[in-house]
Nucleic acid binder design. Structure first.
Lengths: 252, 252
DNA sequence: GCGGAGAAAGTTGTCTGACAAGTAGACAAA
DNA sequence: TTTGTCTACTTGTCAGACAACTTTCTCCGC
């Protein structure tokens, strides 16, 4: 059960979103085959009992997602390579993905990023990491919130991987956890030593990257992310075979 | 103001797309700060000399991308966590990411997927992999196109990772290469032994997963993806430190 | 009968005007 | 100062119209 963010209680009734969600489901479920033509806007507006304006805005979202392509005069068609274009966490439908699944993907990419950062980082990028680390250090001693610096630290590592795509992806994934980082950096988290533990792990990752030791960076990053997940109450399967099968059995 | 005249797109002129692209750029470039209110629809329609309908559709895309949130009666605002919501390859702007960068991300995730699939795959999932492998085998002997079976094989592994998010992400990333898979499975590729080499690598990955050997699966998957990149003329940096720094130097 | 030109119908793209729903700031009253 | 109301403004939705374009069908010449 994913912890919903703040303004999720009130859901402003928006017709175009509802229509868009229905069409999204129909397309992904295969009710409309790839390449097939959608009903006309007039027909859809009739079916949903809304104006064509609403239908058009709904379809505009599907086009933005790469699910639909439209040709003036011909109609709107389900994209041939279905589901192309964008990748979103919530999958659009039910929030099927749990926190531990998002965290595992994050772990995979961030560990790889740390590994590469150890080998490719420029002095400037190392400096950016050090700056974020220092900001967390300050926040820790003053008992302030270092969540943003925490975020920056992770993104700095991803950027230092030398692959801008990895940088963007880490920034994207970590945003899913921007709210979840709070427990570590809350007043209780800092007092209880959670933030201190996280900072120790951060230092280990940083030193490994600074030393250019890819294997050590990999281990330190993995250790940090698994621990971070634990601080959030999320169980992330590690890479160890024995542990993995054990955890899997436990989760199933 | 900023007279960024819309770049002539090859596609049929679509006003809402052009307006959306301009607003997209302005937001990402920071011309509109996160949390800041956008100009009203009436004002934008005046500035771009288009109707409010066009402006609304452009903003609908930005809302779908999570760049903008709108509140009836209040206005449209730049999302506070900027760029949230979706992850797209082309970044929306210029196609900055090169093939080797996309391939590296793909390699990271698919290798991890194979590793996990070796430990978690169910008999049914193993069967799905075997089926895709067999279809490629048939295509190979008959000289037919096995690109789709190739795709299915990779996706089957990702699905067997036990993390649906990984499955979806691999499907997403591999779609970027759906066109690029052609060289391997073209008539020349099959005759020239490219498809045969790929199939040997596929078998190695499959057998490692079937045997439940995570480390072997990891190595086989990495070997396959690096070779596959080579067949497309893409240089993917491997994980070896010496190689990495060498390649980086060569690419820079 | 067959092929091609052209008309006709249908569909998306855009424009215009209007009203409902909701918000924020000003202002008056307690 | 606080509270309630009012007003101007903004987004959401509706309806109708026309332009641009595609597809289909008809009709004509052969």
């Amino acid at each position: 059960m994913s912890s919903d963010r703040l303004p999720r209680i009130l859901r402003p009734h928006r017709l175009s979103e509802e229509v868009g969600a229905v069409l999204d489901r129909r397309i992904r479920s295969g009710a409309f085959a790839p390449g097939e033509r959608l009903p006309t806007e007039a027909r859809l507006s009739e079916e949903f009992a809304v104006s064509r304006t609403v239908v058009r805005e709904a379809i505009a979202r599907l086009k933005a997602d790469g699910l639909v392509e439209s040709r003036q005069g011909a109609g709107a068609f389900v994209a041939r390579p279905l589901g192309a274009g964008v990748f979103r966490m919530g999958s659009g439908l039910a929030e099927a993905e749990g926190a531990h699944e998002i965290f595992e993907l994050r772990l995979i990419v961030e560990v790889a990023a740390a590994e590469r950062a150890a080998l490719r980082r420029t002095p400037e990028q190392l400096e950016a990491m050090a700056a974020a680390l220092a900001r967390m250090e300050v926040a820790l001693t003053r008992g302030e919130d270092g969540a943003m610096a925490d975020d920056d630290f992770h993104c700095a590592i991803a950027t230092a991987s030398g692959n801008p795509l990895i940088g963007r992806f880490v920034a994207f994934v970590s945003q899913e956890f921007s709210a979840s980082r709070a427990p570590t950096w809350s007043a209780e988290g800092v007092a209880g030593g959670l933030a201190g533990a996280a900072q120790d792990e951060h230092r280990a990752v940083f030193e490994a990257i600074a030393a250019g030791d890819a294997e050590l960076a990999r281990q330190a990053a993995q250790q940090h992310l698994v621990s971070a997940a634990g601080r959030l109450g999320v169980v992330v399967p590690t890479l160890l075979a024995a542990d993995l099968q054990h955890i899997d059995k436990g989760m199933a």
